[in-house]
Design a protein around this nucleic acid. Sequence first.
DNA 1: CATGTTGGAGAGTGGCACTATCTAAGCATG
DNA 2: CATGCTTAGATAGTGCCACTCTCCAACATG
Lengths: 242, 242
Amino acid sequence: MGCKRNPERETGAGNRSGKPTRKGAGAVRLAELSERSGVSTPTIKYYLRERLLPPGRRITATQSEYGEEHLRRLRLVRALIQVGRIPVTTARDVLAAIEDDSLNHHHRLGTAVQALPHGPEADEADPATAAARRTATELLDLLDWRFSREVTDISRPFGMLVAAIAALDRLGYACDTAHLLPYARQAEQLAVVDLDLVEEFRTPEEQVEAAVALTVLYEPVLLSLRRLAEAEESNRRFGTGS
Amino acid sequence: MGCKRNPERETGAGNRSGKPTRKGAGAVRLAELSERSGVSTPTIKYYLRERLLPPGRRITATQSEYGEEHLRRLRLVRALIQVGRIPVTTARDVLAAIEDDSLNHHHRLGTAVQALPHGPEADEADPATAAARRTATELLDLLDWRFSREVTDISRPFGMLVAAIAALDRLGYACDTAHLLPYARQAEQLAVVDLDLVEEFRTPEEQVEAAVALTVLYEPVLLSLRRLAEAEESNRRFGTGS
DNA sequence: CATGTTGGAGAGTGGCACTATCTAAGCATG
DNA sequence: CATGCTTAGATAGTGCCACTCTCCAACATG
């Protein structure tokens, strides 16, 4: 505190070529990583401890240096946690899945999405849950989502869907396949747009990271746009009246 | 603990006529409210304390009874908190807005949505935020969302959108109006579907409650469907390969 | 009248995301 | 080589949140 560092070291700024920074080019130490990312040093240490960030290159017994890839990773972590609102431990699992070389392209994405937060487990004792499960299954059949259909028992997004339908049902809001279909059709179209975006990246690594980042970071975009659109539509229908 | 209540008291079960329970018909006390809702008595007490639930009808100095409207409210609260993942204090504000008689129809909804969680405030010092704000404003202009356009400074959904765009930008994912437009168009269509659903209710009170409940509870539906659709599309494009 | 339940209030719990403090080891300078 | 700075790593502490526990006096019920 009270100790301002002068940011005159512009060491290696502009290493934007794809390959990982090599041999200390553009490498910085903790303090500067903190400064550049806007994340406090204690928090970076915490992320290192929690393995959200890979350790830096060891220089001496007590010092390491970090490269552009650390900066980028740090920004990804912050985005996932702050904007995507995913818990720290979840973020670790998601990032681990992204990098798991033992899995193929599609599987890595699946594992990553599987780790995403999804709300509490549905209460299987509740009849509303059973009904919701039936509705959701029926919906997948109608949509001919064969892949999702196969794994309904273990898929977290499916569980999330069931829990939401059950809650709506308990409150007496009709929520059957007829109501859900338009939402599902929209989701289908969004998925196409998203995957098109993903395919613009060349390497599998970039693609998987992009897929996860886009999945998570477009969620707030989608929700905020829906809320804005609803405000707009509400204003159109009920505005300045009664 | 270790004390099972026998649920033989079916007091007034089946009061499902719209009007609020009157004069103790169908009224129950805390223990049974807990049993019927599946929410523990301490938690109900906590909600009463936090004013998420209105107090019961006072019978004696130390006892109150609760009607169907309490059961319904309790279910709404649980759904908002558990499925909609909104914080307890936020839920209180949202519910207060729903019931605020001083506001009109459209305004109550606006206030309720305004109270919804929205992530951290955008860091105005960050140039990415400034750029994101420009992008978002431009998007609203393109869409001709005049209503939202007027209140960009104070609208929480707008802030949420800006933060998300800024995060995507910082990570180097292109996120301009061209990319956002399809999402916004989808959101527009969803809003129409949602508001149609809302208009099926007759009284303004029901409509406002429905609007809030549907806004919040369809969010997990939307997100889970998108994740499922992405898995489906990913499987279609990359599945069983490499 | 004995036993158990209730509403109300305060304190306690566990989880989470940091945040603060400490230590030994370094490097930089004179 | 002395001095003053930073750093990695570990441990402990903080603040917030959503409950959860405990206690009490005032009933209710057999």
